[in-house]
């Protein structure tokens, strides 16, 4: 896997992620990528309900959210999380066939989406973009890529 400069928060702490996917394999795959970006896994969830609970518990910087899951689908989880935390940064992870669902998730407040199979360099750029959009620093978005970890 290629090397990436670490993505960091503004306060120079590492970025904390919540990874939501019903497939353990998909989660591990994403976590591996996140770690090469210098990130930290705050929590994992295999369905929407757990995702909401985990979000409230861990308050992650970024949520990577699958679309189709048991118990509660990704879209509903997005809707519920954003209703409580309007500044939540949620990136949908899905294959092309679910365009309708991604559209709905974006309308509910997801910040971005990435296609499965996820490519590390694409995810990296997307995360960098989503992290740079700091609502508090409107007008002067900063790129938060630090030195190589």
């Amino acid at each position: 896997m290629p090397q990436f400069a670490a993505l960091q928060r503004k306060d120079n702490k590492s970025v904390r992620y919540l990874v939501v996917d019903d497939s353990v394999f998909a989660r591990k795959n994403l976590i591996k990528m996140i770690q090469t970006f210098g990130g930290e896994v705050a929590g994992e969830a295999g369905d929407g309900l757990t995702a909401i609970a985990e979000f409230n518990r861990t308050k992650p910087d970024i949520v990577l959210m699958d679309i189709t899951m048991p118990q509660m689908e990704g879209i509903e989880a997005v809707e519920r999380i954003v209703r409580q935390h309007s500044d939540a940064r949620i990136v949908m992870v899905s294959s092309v066939g679910y365009q309708e669902n991604i559209l709905a998730a974006l309308q509910k407040g997801a910040k971005h989406f990435v296609q499965k199979p996820v490519k590390a360099e694409v995810l990296y750029e997307i995360l960098r973009y989503v992290l740079s959009d700091d609502p508090a620093a409107a007008g002067a978005p900063t790129v938060l890529a630090g030195e190589h970890a």
């Binding site: 365009q99 991604i102 559209l103 974006l106 309308q107 989406f113 296609q115």
Partner: peptide, 8 residues
């Protein structure tokens, strides 16, 4: 996913 891209 053009439609989703446009939404974004």
């Amino acid at each position: 996913m053009r439609a989703a891209a446009f939404q974004l």
